[in-house]
């Protein structure tokens, strides 16, 4: 997951005036290099995840940190998430209405199909992408600036594992709050979708609010996604924050990497969970 950025070299003083010659790597070397980076990054990420899980069970409980993070991750995202999910609800219904119009101008199942898609995928995945931007960038920026100001080293000197101290409260808070927020986001998207269906395609709300297609499979896939994304966001962005280097500029790059890597993780997790869901609950 490591995307390298330029300009991160530390600044040696006047000691090394000899320009070292390095040839630009060939395509094979570049590919191999990024494969190794990806592998090493993945390994470290896994270790962060495992340690997070370990400390979540075994670590000391910091009540204050946990509630603060619940507030930071949860409450502070409600406004942003409501706006974006409200608009995505309108867009999705409008687009699927247009799509339906081309085959069979029959809108009776529009609401039911939309609700099924929302529960199974869109609420969780798009909501989580939004959270990845807001929450992920925030976590990386915060932890990143603690790294460059050597506060994390100070933590280590106090024999506190930064993962236990910094990531675990965010992890617990995120797993809970992501699920809650996504249920809320889905509701908002459903309501704005119903309004759009009524205004643009004349579908009565009674017809639109149709739960006929929801089954156990949809709900379990949706919930699995909530939990997976909720766990992935703090772990990936926390990892990006902890691996900040290159002084103050590094914080900016770490934030960038956190957004990109968290979003990618969500898209990849989505693919695997969706496929698994399709295979376990076919139709």
């Amino acid at each position: 997951m490591a995307t390298t950025s330029p300009g991160q070299a530390s600044h040696p003083a006047d000691v090394d005036p000899v320009p070292e010659a390095h040839a630009p790597p060939g395509p094979v070397a570049a590919l191999g290099g990024s494969a190794i980076d990806l592998f090493l990054g993945g390994k470290e990420l896994l270790s962060v995840f495992i340690r997070t899980l370990y400390y979540s069970v075994r670590g000391k409980r910091e009540k204050g940190a946990f509630t603060t993070q619940m507030y930071e991750i949860g409450n502070k995202s409600v406004f942003f998430l409501s706006i974006t999910m409200g608009f995505i609800g309108m867009i999705l219904v409008y687009q699927s209405g247009l799509q339906a119009k081309r085959v069979v101008p029959d809108y009776t199942m529009l609401g039911a199909t939309y609700l099924e898609l929302l529960v199974r995928d869109f609420a969780a995945s798009i909501g989580a992408l939004m959270l990845a931007t807001r929450v992920g960038a925030g976590i990386a920026a915060e932890i990143g600036s603690m790294v460059v100001t050597e506060q994390v080293d100070a933590l280590r000197m106090c024999a506190a594992d930064p993962i236990d101290f910094l990531i675990v409260p965010r992890f617990k808070a995120s797993v809970i709050m992501t699920t809650v927020l996504i249920v809320w986001a889905g509701t908002v998207a459903y309501l704005t979708g119903a309004a759009t269906a009524y205004v643009a395609f004349d579908v009565a709300p009674q017809t639109f609010f149709n739960m006929a297609l929801i089954d156990v499979g949809d709900v379990s896939v949706g919930l699995a996604k909530c939990l997976a994304y909720g766990a992935a966001i703090p772990v990936v962005s926390g990892y990006c924050g902890l691996s900040t280097f290159g002084g103050s500029e590094g914080v900016g790059w770490a934030t960038t990497r956190a957004v990109v890597n968290t979003s990618l993780t969500i898209i990849i997790l989505n693919f695997f969970i969706s496929t698994a869901g399709f295979l376990i609950f076919p139709g």
């Binding site: 040696p12 003083a13 005036p17």
Partner: peptide, 15 residues
């Protein structure tokens, strides 16, 4: 003259 192709962050303050 010999540092023309180097980037500023690589150099010391005096340079």
């Amino acid at each position: 003259q010999e540092f023309g192709d180097r980037y500023p962050p690589e150099l010391g303050d005096g340079m």
